[in-house]
Design a protein around this nucleic acid. Structure first.
Lengths: 309, 309
DNA sequence: CCCCTTCATACCCACAAAGTATCGCTACCC
DNA sequence: GGGTAGCGATACTTTGTGGGTATGAAGGGG
């Protein structure tokens, strides 16, 4: 049985007349008669009663037509759905990101994307940079925001573009002696208990800290390790110590803490957006479009990377 | 787009390989490639990624395949449903009947039919014989049980067969003087208030009563008119009068009343089953089969009538 | 009673689906 | 690194069938 048979049967039922149904279908009457006859032979049931007053579906015909309508509706929807999926209007986007990205670029981008593509299901997974990279390579994520460019096995097949610069700043409780200082020096930091990001989770940040303190990491050995920036800020607010973290902490207005610069100024790894260029899903394409629209400079860098690859 | 395209796309997705999918479909590989290419051109979206590791559906392909599966399932169900409807296993049967038929032949037949054809929706309409006949002719009923053969416009196109004989009996309250008599005479009836079926609703019964009482219908003029047998029995039980009705009243064991014969014995019109022979629905055919199985003599008469027509 | 309407049948043609042969590409493997 | 095997795409041929035209059969209406 072919879709043609369904279309013909529906037209015949609608017009109640072989001749008129055939004209509506753009074919002659005899082919329509033959197709309907073939259909009735295949189903093994008479589907239409040919009376003088017109052609009426039998009970079997009514049952058949109800299914036929649904079948054709599904077929039409198949094309529509495929188109929407291909344009990235539906589908899902699995995004892995480091917690600090949630402070600055992600709220804008995700808000915009949610408005532009309301039917794309966003799956957000906060995770350390290394896990994001591995998940991208394994195909468990579509796109990731990491600290520093992706490293490790398979990372060479990923496309990545920086989406934010960063440097180290300090955060202290309002009552802390350093509160109110524009910046604190390394010497000052050495005299205080520190709160920093856990080294094994974010080696790139750990590297920045080592750059700041030099090879003498005694100050870092005694530091309290926190899993993410929110914890660092929270611990600093409690007076546990001087928190050290990325400058994008500044975008979290939080009572009870003060931020100060750190001298010398110490660059941290860029926030980097990356994805697997092979089997790029339409939803990912739409997401990249949104990123382009949100920050034109990132878009330009992206185009450059894609053109090179 | 034809069903073939859906079948091919599903086979390709299942096997992940043009050659193997084509073999499973019983065609060569190039035609499959062409049909898939045609489908992708028609939907305007790439549906499959051809990689070395195999052929995998894209996001658009997944969306398409989900719809395709449902469409093909509907098409398969269309054939199945049509067959079931044609065999009278599904559908509906609209039955009109006089109330007295509910006493004797209908409970058996309907019970059996409900067990044999659980998926046929029974629509039962208690109505007077004349209305049943008109509804049959108008196509608003599939089958009817009436008192006497159908009369009136269009009745000649109906097929009918008697399914039960009947004669007049009397019903009185347990305390009534006649209670306990095996039968009552016309003379006895003339001395009592009577309860009879309303004449205009069932003219055939009224004719039987006139036969019993002769042309002197004075006794009937004063009688209480009831719409159905249940009302006659109920009124007799209350002592309103002597009820006169069909002998099938005997099959309703009811406390508080006694039944007696009437002399002379007066035949009532037969219970008659009738239906329109033209556009006989499969459900009606199944119903007639049930009737045949339930009462072989009625079945034989039915076959005779249908063979003649 | 003839004619008109309507669907079915007979026959033909043309197109497209399927078959055959071959090419291009990639990955793999000696 | 070149030969080779596997896979999908392309080119061309064949064939089945969907559709067109002509006509027949049957029933109803003027």
């Amino acid at each position: 049985m072919e879709a043609r048979h369904l279309r013909y049967a529906l037209a015949l039922a609608e017009h109640g007349h072989f001749g008129r149904a055939a004209r509506a279908l753009g074919i002659a009457q005899p082919p329509l008669s033959k197709q309907i006859a073939d259909l009735e032979r295949e189903t093994g049931a008479r589907l239409f009663d040919r009376t003088r007053q017109g052609v009426l579906p039998t009970a079997a015909g009514e049952a058949f037509l109800a299914r036929a309508r649904r079948a054709l509706a599904e077929m039409a929807a198949a094309t529509v759905d495929a188109g929407r999926a291909a344009r990235g209007e539906t589908g899902r986007l699995r995004l892995g990101f480091v917690a600090s990205a949630l402070l600055d670029p992600l709220p804008d981008v995700l808000g915009r994307f949610g408005r532009e593509r309301p039917d794309v299901r966003l799956e957000l997974h906060e995770m350390a940079s290394g896990r994001s990279t591995a998940a991208l390579v394994a195909g468990d994520l579509d796109v990731a925001v990491t600290l520093g460019p992706p490293r490790g096995a398979g990372a060479e097949h990923l496309v990545s573009v920086p989406i934010g610069h960063d440097h180290l700043i300090a955060v202290v409780g309002s009552a802390h002696p350093y509160a109110g200082q524009a910046s604190v020096s390394v010497a000052q930091l050495r005299r205080q208990p520190l709160v920093v990001a856990a080294g094994e989770d974010e080696p790139a940040v750990a590297a920045g800290l080592r750059t700041l303190f030099g090879e003498d990491s005694a100050a870092l050995d005694g530091a309290t390790a926190a899993r993410d920036v929110h914890t660092i800020i929270g611990l600093a607010a409690c007076g546990v110590g001087v928190g050290l973290g990325p400058s994008r902490m500044l975008s979290v207005p939080r009572p009870g803490v003060r931020f100060c610069g750190v001298t010398p100024r110490t660059a941290l790894p860029d926030l980097v957006l990356s994805f697997a260029d092979r089997d790029r899903s339409p939803a990912l394409g739409a997401f990249l479009d949104t990123v382009r629209g949100n920050c034109p400079d990132v878009g330009a860098a992206l185009d450059l990377r894609l053109a090179r690859g």
